[in-house]
Nucleic acid binder design. Structure first.
Lengths: 237, 237
DNA sequence: GCAAAAGTGTTTTTTCTACACCCATGG
DNA sequence: CCATGGGTGTAGAAAAAACACTTTTGC
């Protein structure tokens, strides 16, 4: 079917002038710190400033496909956990024209990375972010907010940790993301009684000097403990 | 800045060929039933099939602005609760070309509507949806899923009810949306002890014949009971 | 007086919180 | 032997769940 069969083509073509891009906040956990991947931008007009890695989407390309391509170009693989969130669509957010961007976050267990990053990419501690290009600081804020909510309501921590992990790293991810501290005993009790993970009977020695070896756990895939969601009446907006 | 100053314009222009639209799932509660607004589509190729109300976005138009315009054209006002959710971006989702649509839901207290709907618009019971055009059934499913999650985690019920409401309607909205039943005594206890609403000492007689008059409540705006979010370890995906 | 809808209390169970010391290792 | 990081249990408080009858009205 040709457009002109349906609408007056003068008027309809007027709408087809936008571009799309994907931008990703890749989050990892390394050296006991949460970090995100930033890219130093070489192109004019971004004079070596940093931003989120991103890519324009071809007119005939699927959004998720474009994301897979981008992820592979960044870290060599695309089979990490990723989630598409809101779009950023302010008319003047990009100097080249109207570009609506699809923001994602991705979770990467640092241990699964098997190639060096190209020179313009850097893992940056989440607590030490610089000023970024365009509206990328806004994107980071919104995406991190989503990540925090997801972390509270879903078992996504395990996507940022290696297959065999220790409990203190789980707690660290929660504490750093949510910026609060948890009681270790209560935290262990809760996560263990949920049946989500299982101890392996293997132990890993502390990397620094000293310290009792920590037990390794992994996801318990065959658990099916159903817990009903509860209604919350506080919490507006 | 002109595009050609920055990139080779042949290559960059190639990306600016997409269009945007907004689609909205307007939800209301009337006659003890949840309903959504459907629009009968007259244009070729939609032969009187129904779909969600929607509109193309002008190249220089903000997405939220376009939504306000759309909402006003539908129900005469735009100051209802609305929330932008995910986008739908499959390459071939629309016969006219690549149109990425921004899906919203909006909550409308039926009592606040003060004009008749134009003839192609109909409120349709949520449990009796017909087959819709394009990917609109998928959009409805995803948006309703969001609505359910929001209803559990946020106090948005009150946006779909009139300013003065009765408790059994609150419960109805929850029961119909989540497709489960609640214990009336426990539900009341919970919502009242949360301090979210306050009784008005006014009563409304039952519309059908018989029945004890129900007390009216309204939102308690000056409450500030802070409840910490709890971590959930079950609940994957 | 009966059908329809609204309202109400107590007990048990579950979940959450607070809290302080011992254990295994490396240097 | 000491510094470092990992591991553990109990008791009280709070929240949730289970459960059945009374009240007010219209017809």
């Amino acid at each position: 079917m040709k457009k002109s069969e349906v609408y007056n083509s003068n008027s309809i073509d007027h709408f087809f002038r936008g571009a799309f891009s994907v931008d990703i906040l890749l989050i990892t956990y390394h050296d006991k710190k949460l970090k995100i991947l930033l890219q130093e931008k070489k192109e004019i007009p971004f004079q070596n400033e940093c931003g989120l890695p991103g890519e324009l989407i071809l007119p005939n390309e699927d959004v998720d496909e474009a994301m897979e391509k981008l992820m592979t170009s960044l870290v060599g693989q695309s089979n990490f956990y990723k989630k598409q969130l809101t779009t950023f669509s302010n008319i003047n957010r990009h100097p080249l024209g109207r570009i609506v961007t699809f923001a994602y976050y991705g979770l990467i267990p640092f241990e699964r990375l098997n190639q060096n990053l190209s020179s313009e990419l850097k893992w940056c501690e989440i607590s030490k972010l610089p000023k970024l290009i365009l509206d990328h600081n806004d994107i980071v804020d919104k995406v991190l907010q989503h990540f925090r909510e997801d972390l509270l309501s879903h078992a996504i921590v395990f996507h940022i940790l290696p297959q065999k992990f220790i409990l203190s790293d789980v707690i660290q991810v929660y504490e750093q993301t949510l910026d609060e501290t948890f009681d270790v005993r209560n935290f262990r009790k809760k996560i263990l009684s949920s049946g989500t993970i299982k101890p392996l009977g293997e132990f890993r020695k502390s990397k620094s000097h000293g310290g009792r070896p920590a037990e390794l756990y992994e996801l318990n895939t065959n658990k099916k403990k159903i817990v009903k969601d509860r209604i919350r009446f506080d919490h507006f907006n």
